[in-house]
Design a protein around this nucleic acid. Structure first.
Lengths: 196, 196, 196, 196
DNA sequence: TATGAATGAGCATTCATTCAT
DNA sequence: CATGAATGAATGCTCATTCAT
């Protein structure tokens, strides 16, 4: 079969593999080109520079990621269930793609401030999804109306991110998906013992 | 006045400033030496190599950081109040030291995997403090006995870290200390509307 | 005229010139690159590292050296004449290439033990040529059958080397080729006065 | 017992040990100072600079060396016997002092051209001894009157030096003193088969 | 479009020497 | 005489990017 996949995605997929297997600082352009089966110079026909590969990679992959999460959330009605679906889908997708888990949680964070700001731009799409869930809960009275919207978002993202990062750092030894319930419970109910 | 401060701390303090102001990848040893007011070679009388400067810096600063937080927590009795003191002290210390805030939240994360593992070792001391608070709350019945201990720790750290990082990325434009109450409330009470 | 000479030899020739004119310890890679008319980085497309330049240089030049000597020896029949051809060709080649004379006799000896061992490997080819002459003389009865083969080889090489080194150290002020006859005579006949 | 040995010789002896055990390029001044049991700065009260240590070391040790050889030669009458005594003493002294053998045959040759020229100055004392033997042999008619004086000296020194260097490079695995007879025989009688 | 040889800026570290004590 | 902390110059190698083909 002739290689029909456009070179653009071919290079992005190569970048994920190379970064996951070699680490951010060992992911030279020439290595990515070799993995993609193209010449070094060809990279520059599709990307402005190395940073552009990384940002594009993150944008493409994060785009798919968000789409899938949105699809799962849509069918849920309550905010709590939507949040559950978000956590579950987030964990499942990363558990199913070890390379992406390593790249997003460990390797891409080694990039410089400028690149991280551009990555944060991409993350805004994800933040919007979280914001939508929070708004749903506030509007329906399901969530406490006095909670700070921005802090709520940062807690959801911060918690999910820390849980995944710890899991990746522990070399994905345990089942990430088993953490969905306790994470969801903790976010919705907090630490307080209401039976007391 | 004669310079009496031992050169070891002098160099570490210089490293904080240079990294905060120039970024991790622009923090050359010669720049640190210049900032510290010593010759390049003098650095190597006190540190094995560049990585040793960074790990030592993190260990020294994180040590002080944890000591101060422990001191504030000790005088509190309930787990909720201890948690409040932790968040408050954490935010206050970083708000008071812009350089350290930039270095810990943005720059040091650009280091390679090996260095980050060594930094994580130092962080374990902080995790222990969080663990102690959770245990206090569990033992006293203040916290819900069914919550997952590890996830609880990851939520506390993940939330605090995300809030601080966002604040640093927004160039510390708003008052970090105003976030103490909502962060604490959200962790303790969760999202659920109990009046409903 | 377009530069058609392959860069590999271009760099090796540059290394000979730079080392001869600046000395072993002043022969920086950047200086060799400049002399070769290429960029510093280009060196590393053809050589693994600096040591590789030096070993390759010695191997290439010594290879030519040995080939030429072998060619001259082949047409001689007696061992004595073969030895004469070896000494004559050895002296002539170095007298004709002042740079190589300086590099082999003075500069390359300053290299570290590891590099010198690798250089000695290359020298074995030369020792084989000497060994062949000795064997020829022994087999034909031309040379005294009781002489120690290894010592004989060391005498031939040690004498030639010392004569050339002295000549180079005296800045090649006298004619090296005038030494061919006395060196040959001394090796073949020894010191003893047979007329006595 | 108080250390009465003057520091000058103490430092020279330390230099021999450090160079022999670590190699020329790993023989830092601080290492020599430590081995000698003095402070780095103390070295500079007795020697102008590092090169001065090495030249002084060679001069002192070579001085002893030559004295011992001269003493052995004096009691011999014929040139051949004097030459035999020289070779024998040369080999015996180096076989008895492994450190000096390594330093003179391998390590000191790694020094730069300037230092080697100064070392050659010291060697002239040794050359004088050889010259004296040659002259003795010429005057008595024992040696062939037509041999070139300078070449004869270079042959003797070059052969002895090559034999010793090969022995050191082979890690002194065989008995150097067993080579005295064949080396002497070869120098005096040459290669030619006189029975033929 | 695609190639890949060539480019050249940038930096951690060592160690001989000094000099205040 | 003796110390040893401090100095600072000097260099091999990598890799993102270009451009002639």
């Amino acid at each position: 079969m002739k290689q029909t996949k456009p070179k653009y995605m071919q290079i992005i997929d190569a970048a994920v593999i190379v970064i996951a297997e070699n680490g951010y600082h060992q992911a030279q352009v020439s290595k990515i080109a070799k993995q993609a089966g193209v010449a070094d110079g060809t990279i520059y026909l599709y990307f402005k520079n190395k940073e552009d590969i990384l940002v594009s990679m993150f944008r493409e992959k994060m785009g798919e990621f968000i789409e899938k999460i949105e699809a799962e959330i849509k069918s849920e009605t309550t905010a709590s269930n939507k949040l559950y679906a978000l956590i579950k889908t987030h964990f499942s997708l990363l558990a199913a793609d070890h390379h992406m888990a390593i790249v997003t949680q460990l390797e891409l964070r080694q990039s410089n401030k400028e690149l991280r700001l551009r990555i944060n731009e991409v993350l805004k799409g994800y933040f919007n999804v979280i914001d939508h869930i929070i708004k749903t809960g506030m509007d329906s009275g399901e969530f406490n109306p006095i909670i700070n919207h921005r802090i709520a978002r940062q807690m959801i993202f911060g918690t999910i991110d820390e849980v995944v990062t710890t899991w990746v750092m522990n070399e994905q030894k345990y089942e990430l998906e088993k953490q969905v319930d306790p994470v969801h419970a903790l976010i919705v109910n907090g630490f307080a013992n209401k039976n007391k």
